[in-house]
Structure formats: structure tokens, C-alpha cells
Amino acid sequence: MNEISVKLRVWRQASADAEGKLQDYKVENVVPDMSFLEMLDVLNEGLARRGEDVIAFDSDCREGICGCCSLTINGVPHGRGTGKTTCQLYMRDFADGETITVEPFRAKAFPVVKDLVVDRSAFDGIMAAGGYVSVNTGAAPDGNQIAIGKDIADKAFDAAACIGCGACVAACKNAAAFLFVGAKVTQLALLPQGHPERERRVIRMVDTMEEAGFGNCTNEAECEAVCPKEISTAHITKLNREYARALLKLS
């Protein structure tokens, strides 16, 4: 297979408080079947060999499951194309000699730690505020003890597919986290185990989301377009409905 070369413009920022800027690199001998992250590995190996500071970026599973690989590539989180994370993006999608801009996920609630690494613990804060069920964990319950209809189970599973990567926030012009929170709230609102805490969960999660500095949804669905799990904005509408329902019930 013919190797290609690409020109990268990568966001370099030494630390959270340092000024950052785009820096140019040229990467030669790129095999088109490399993933985008493998291409960055090749670049980093070269930098390390020359004794330069390697580019910091997050990755873990490299198979589209963990949601670590938070890069905005040519202005689109995880790069162009539907239903994939950065680790599932391949160099064959780029032309020989193409200039590729690589930036971190941008949001006030996701501060840059270094280079392309951002701190997404604001999502953990939202989960800690209500993204759980407080069940009495005695012995492991019988799996079929609570019967759940297939249609409900399927819908809950669609929501549960969210890996919490934050691409929805990164893509939204308002840096809103409605798709993430919508998926989490919907999943638990659909299942019987989630019902006892249904109202206070949505209120707490939405309040925590706002306090963390995420923006508001203006229904433009950029989030759905970049979601690696193709989670639909129907979950946002469901979130709005759940929130209104909770306000009515609690008042």
C-alpha cells in the first residue's frame, strides 16, 4: 500500500495555565491503514528520538469503547464521518499531503490539562449527582426477576450506549452537555430500577450540569452528528420532558 505524508497543525500547550498555539509538523511514511492515533504515535516516536517534548493526547482502549480519545480533527470532534471515535478513524480518509488541524475538545467545563488532553471530570460530577440507582445490594438478584419489555429494554440500551466521551459537548456551538445528560437520564427513567429516584435524579443532574459551566441546547443536533454511538437527540427531548415532569411532581 502506498504510504502518504500529511501536514499536521497541532495544539501545543505546556500546562493548564500556559498560552497555547498551533504548531506545524510533517509526518512521513504514513500507512493508510494506520489509525489516526497510530499516526500520532509515529510522530511522537520521532519527537522523542530528537529529545523534544511529545504531544500529549488521551487514549486507552483504542477500540471505540472507553471514550478517551478526545481530539477535534479539522474542526469536527473525532473527525469527519459517523459513528466512530478518533481511534477508529483511519489515515485512508485523508489525502496525500493534506493539512490536518488537531485541537483539544473545547469547553469551559473541559479545561485543557496539556496539549490535546482535557479534564472531563465535569461529567463524573454529573454522574455522581444522580447517574446511579441506590439499590440494596444484597445477594446478586435473579436476572429475570424484574421483567422488562423488549421495546423498553431496547430503548434503554440505545441510551446506555453512551460512552461519555464528550464529543457532544465539543461539537455543540454552545458547549452544551444535553445529549450526554439526556442519554443518562433516559436510560434510568425507562427502567424500573430507576423509577424511585426519577425526579430528583433529573433535577440534580441538570443543576450540576449548569453549575459546571456547560451551555444550553439550541436544538441544532451537531452532537448527534458526531456521537460515536449515534445517540439521537430524541434523548434531549426526553430530558426536557423528564425535567418538566419532575418540576411538576415536586412542586
Binding site: 474542526g75 469536527v76 454552545n174 451551555g215 441544532e220 452528528a225 458526531v226
Partner: peptide
């Protein structure tokens, strides 16, 4: 609030395409 939620913007900012409903009007 929405503007404050992203103090540092992207240098390159493309539309995601696909399911996106972002438009000049929106």
C-alpha cells in the same frame, strides 16, 4: 451563557454534517 461556555474557540470549525441541523438561521 452559551458564549461563556466556550471561552477558547476552535481555530478550525467545520460543520459536522450528517445528522446535524445547524443552519444559518439556527
Amino acid at each position: 451563557e452559551n458564549r461563556d461556555a466556550r471561552p477558547i474557540g476552535y481555530q478550525r470549525n467545520d460543520r459536522a454534517g450528517g445528522a446535524s441541523r445547524k443552519s444559518l438561521a439556527s
